[in-house]
Design a protein around this nucleic acid. Structure first.
Ligand SMILES: [Mn+2]
Ligand SMILES: [Mn+2]
Length: 308
DNA sequence: GACAAGC
DNA sequence: GCTTGTCAACGCTGA
DNA sequence: TCAGCG
């Protein structure tokens, strides 16, 4: 992370000084090559901006990804260039990013376990972070379910919000407490933390059953069938996020989209008052600084399991 | 983005 | 030294 | 079987 930089640009003494309001844009973040590389052309957002964002939010973001296998969406030439997922380390991969060699996997997986590893993701232009729904040390037992709501183009935001409240209420009637976040795209994620032991099969069967029940209950609003043609004007309840090896965008991760949007945890109370475009690399630091409490307070301490 | 091969 | 090419997931669904 | 999907 502190590799040679053969340039006469001053190197910041520490990351805090990089982020000071009066900072010179000439300061470098240690170890970051091509800091001026534009990753988001429409927004003029650079690799340096992405690294600074990750540093600023690291205490919020890390709890949602540490000790989980993770896949990275990399955009070495910016979001308009070639993009690719990476789920295994390769040659020259940053040593800060943990390599998980698991008996169950043919190839090692990745994990981001501290702030240094998070900054290393900026160095390799890994914009999106996609963790698994389980812990590295308990790979066969998921500890959360994500009900992924994918609206068709024709579905308005307010309809989606209403739909999310229906999901919340249906899960509440099954004695499950839920948390909600924007995806940074057009959808919403309803997160169900689990304690105790559940298998992938249990979790998948539950979410499939839940999605199909929802579609049966509100056929005008929801579909559980992923075929595009059946989704006209409806919300696809994508239960496929809850399979072993499947991933979903991490809370507080950037998205590789114009605007540098962020998948953002919110409270159920603020859901009716926000717009999906409210949350970006530019706005998140301000939002987080102003928050009096974690919108997801209680997620870690929620103890609940699926009915037998 | 990192690396190896080819010029 | 510089340029160029190669590589960097995965597995299910529904037709 | 395979393009499409997230
Ligand atoms: Mn490149
Ligand atoms: Mn989705």
């Amino acid at each position: 992370m502190f590799a040679d930089q053969s340039s006469n640009v001053p190197v910041a003494k520490d990351l805090a000084s990089v982020l000071a309001p009066s900072r010179s844009i000439d300061f470098q973040i240690p170890g970051l090559t091509n800091p001026g590389r534009v990753l988001f052309p429409r927004d003029g957002i650079t690799k340096r901006d992405a690294a600074a964002y990750l540093f600023q939010v690291n205490k919020w973001l890390l709890p949602h990804i540490v000790d989980r296998p993770i896949s990275l969406l990399r955009c070495a030439d910016g979001i308009d260039g070639e993009q690719f997922f990476q789920r295994h380390p390769g040659k020259g991969f940053p040593s800060e990013i943990t390599t998980l060699s698991l008996d169950s996997e043919d190839e090692p997986l990745l994990a981001i376990n501290d702030a240094e590893a998070l900054l290393a993701t900026a160095q390799i232009s890994a914009i999106e972070l996609h963790p698994w729904g389980c812990r590295s040390d308990d790979i066969e037992n998921p500890d959360r379910i994500i009900i992924d709501l994918d609206p068709d183009e024709a579905v308005g935001w307010n309809v989606l919000v209403e739909a999310a409240f229906i999901v919340r209420s249906e899960l509440e009637s099954r004695d499950l407490k839920t948390f909600v976040k924007t995806t940074g795209g057009k959808g919403l994620h309803v997160v169900v933390p689990l304690t105790g032991q559940h298998t992938w099969q249990q979790v998948f069967e539950f979410s499939k059953l839940f999605a199909t029940a929802l579609a049966k209950l509100h056929p005008k609003r929801f579909v559980a069938n992923m075929s595009k043609s059946r989704r006209q004007g409806k919300i696809f309840v994508d239960y496929h996020r809850n399979r072993r090896g499947a991933t979903a965008i991490a809370a507080y991760s950037l998205r590789a989209r114009p605007g540098a949007s962020v998948s953002t945890p919110i409270t159920w109370d603020e859901l009716p008052m926000v717009n999906p475009g409210d949350f970006t690399l530019r706005t998140l630091p301000t939002r987080l600084a102003a928050l009096r409490t974690d919108p997801w307070a209680g997620l870690e301490s929620t103890e609940q399991r699926l009915a037998e």
